[in-house]
């Protein structure tokens, strides 16, 4: 994923939200507020805290019609972070997560792969994965999770199975799933079977796929980069 085109797609999809000044519904997006907020963040980065907190109230929280994986508040917050002067970015990413409510934290996690922050956001992923808040755990397993080491990543996948997060939330699951994850899933399946409880269907399917010996040349093995 190329960050800049992705940011532009996000901006276009957010601005394509129907104008809120329709009489029969809530405002969905306060465009004037958003434009002013984006301008202000560039000129006065310290203003971001209050604007970031208010983004859901000003821009709404619906999935974007043109990019339904994104909600308006997440998209607006990502654009606000992207509008910062680059030197302010690492500090503000950290602060907006640490000082944020759950929705602000989710937006920061989703922003990480789209911003030039290098590995600076990895501690935030670890923090999110430690929570039991499924909104945060699933956001932490997006594209930026390629920066998690394999042991932490496997634990996070297993946590998804435990907490009922669909495995579809996990970026590059099939590339990255390895024999060790299969062993962990099999152990979990044994415990569930012994307890007379069901295993989530997506976890069962993943375990079945991992348990079939790979023929050479199949593209399903773990990516070499993550084995490092």
């Amino acid at each position: 994923m190329e960050p800049e085109p992705e940011l532009e797609r996000l901006r276009a999809a957010l601005l394509a939200v129907p104008d809120g000044r329709l009489p029969d519904r809530d405002w969905l997006l306060d465009r004037d507020w958003l434009a002013e907020a984006l301008r202000r963040v560039g000129a006065e980065p310290a203003a971001l805290g209050r604007l970031f907190a208010a983004a859901g109230r000003r821009c709404g929280r619906t999935p974007l019609p043109d990019l339904p994986d994104w909600t308006a508040d997440d998209a607006a917050r990502v654009l606000l972070l992207a509008a910062l002067p680059p030197t302010e970015l690492p500090g503000q990413v950290e602060a907006r997560y640490r000082e944020g409510d759950a929705a602000e934290r989710r937006a920061v996690l989703r922003a990480l792969p789209l911003l030039p922050v290098g590995d600076a956001g990895v501690p935030l992923l670890h923090d999110a994965i430690r929570t039991n808040d499924t909104r945060l755990v699933s956001a932490a397993l997006g594209p930026y999770s390629t920066r998690l080491d394999q042991a932490a990543w496997r634990q996070a996948v297993l946590k998804c199975v435990f907490t009922g997060i669909p495995l579809a939330a996990v970026h590059r699951l099939h590339d990255r799933a390895d024999a060790e994850l299969a062993t962990m899933l099999a152990g979990f399946a044994d415990e569930r079977r012994a307890a007379g409880r069901d295993m989530p269907a997506d976890a069962t399917a993943l375990l079945a796929r991992l348990s079939v010996p790979h023929r050479s040349g199949t593209p399903t093995g773990p990516g070499a980069e993550e084995e490092a």
Binding site: P18, D24, R25, D26, W27, L28, D30, W33, A54, R57, R58, G60, R61, T62, P63, T71, A72
Partner: peptide
């Protein structure tokens, strides 16, 4: 419920 109103359905909207 009006389809298209935002998730969370803030019925008492307003800005800060």
């Amino acid at each position: 419920a009006t389809p298209g109103t935002f998730e969370g359905n803030s019925i008492l909207r307003g800005g800060s």
